[in-house]
């Protein structure tokens, strides 16, 4: 089992007072894969990562990281992992180079100067290497943070919202870096609020909702779960109800109305529905059509559909606590 899975957890639980931040997390991350953990604020993503990265002690359950027991062998787990937190986990008072040399030293790297130099080059930080990190931009900090997580070539890399708050250029740099790590065979578990990020980087997506896994699968599998999305725009408001009747018959789902645009849309669970058939049926029903579309769902659609209830008050609470921590 340990040879197939880099991360394997069973029934992990974490409570903060009354709030059950993580409720029975069963997670299996195949070696060399990238798993994206997706969910709204307060879904328990950060708590899950902090548990797996030995930063929090689970109240119940067990996990093996790179073959080592999370609770009984935290030191061995720490040797095998790299962690980049939501908030840059580097020392702002030190320079980029001083940070990397310090972490290399704590990792027992022999030539700390050489390793720091390599990583600074790789992440485009050579020029800023001798400036205090407090003067870095957000993107530079995240890159330094990622570099610090890679000092000892970790078997498993945890990235907690690695691109939150970054501009598109910095985000692309982080994405490229994760892609390169994947190509090298590093197992990556990342959390994100951005569906695009999960879609682009992850082999497997885990949807978290209120402390547990709501769904998991590859991005195409998850999209297949909800089929496609049909939308038609009609000539005037009077015929919207007629259009909705047709859509209801064809898709088997409750249509939704956009009165401003005279548009009616519905999620379609029937994979055999085609655009010509949609148009023919509406035409036959005498609906004057201006536009019709049948598009594959985005992970956004999946996400909204599979986690119907929005984040509730108590989960928002737990998020505040996570941040305070």
């Amino acid at each position: 089992m340990t040879s197939t899975y880099a991360v394997l957890s069973e029934g992990l639980e974490k409570r903060f007072g009354e709030v059950r931040a993580v409720r029975g997390l069963d997670l299996a991350v195949a070696r060399g894969s990238v798993v994206g953990m997706l969910g709204p604020n307060g879904a328990g993503k950060t708590t899950a990562v902090r548990l797996l990265a030995t930063l929090l002690r689970p109240d119940a359950g067990s996990a093996r990281i790179a073959g080592h027991d999370l609770v009984r062998e935290p030191h061995a787990v720490r040797r095998a992992i790299g962690v980049t937190g939501q908030y840059a986990s580097v020392d702002g008072d030190l320079t980029g180079r001083q940070n990397l040399r310090l972490f290399a030293r704590l990792h027992r790297v022999r030539d700390t100067a050489a390793r720091a130099g390599e990583l600074l080059d790789r992440f485009g930080l050579a020029e800023a290497a001798d400036r205090p990190v407090s003067t870095y931009s957000g993107g530079m900090r995240r890159r330094l943070d990622l570099a610090a997580s890679l000092i000892r070539h970790p078997a498993v890399l945890f990235l907690d919202e690695p691109t939150t708050g970054l501009d598109p250029v910095s985000r692309n740099q982080i994405w490229d870096a994760v892609g390169a790590l994947k190509a090298e065979g590093t197992t990556v578990l990342l959390t994100t609020q951005y569906l695009e990020e999960a879609d682009r980087l992850a082999d497997q997506v885990v949807l978290m909702d209120r402390g547990r896994i709501a769904h998991s699968g590859s991005p195409p599998q998850l999209k297949a779960l909800i089929g496609s999305y049909a939308e038609v725009v009609v000539a005037h408001a009077d015929v919207m109800v007629a259009a909705a009747g047709v859509l209801d018959q064809l898709t088997g789902a409750e249509p939704s109305f956009d009165h401003d645009r005279h548009a009616v849309g519905a999620v379609c669970l029937d994979p055999t529905l085609t655009l010509p058939r949609l148009v023919r049926e509406l035409d036959a029903a005498g609906v004057p059509l201006l536009d019709a579309s049948l598009r594959p769902p985005t992970l956004d659609d999946v996400f909204l559909r599979l986690t119907e209830t929005p984040a509730t008050d108590h989960s928002d609470h737990s998020d505040v606590k996570e941040r305070a921590a």
């Binding site: 061995a76 720490r78 937190g85 908030y87 580097v90 020392d91 702002g92 990792h107």
Partner: peptide, 13 residues
């Protein structure tokens, strides 16, 4: 309050 403490805690030190 510094993120760097998290890093120290995840290092084998």
């Amino acid at each position: 309050h510094r993120g760097v403490m998290d890093r120290f805690r995840t290092l084998p030190m």
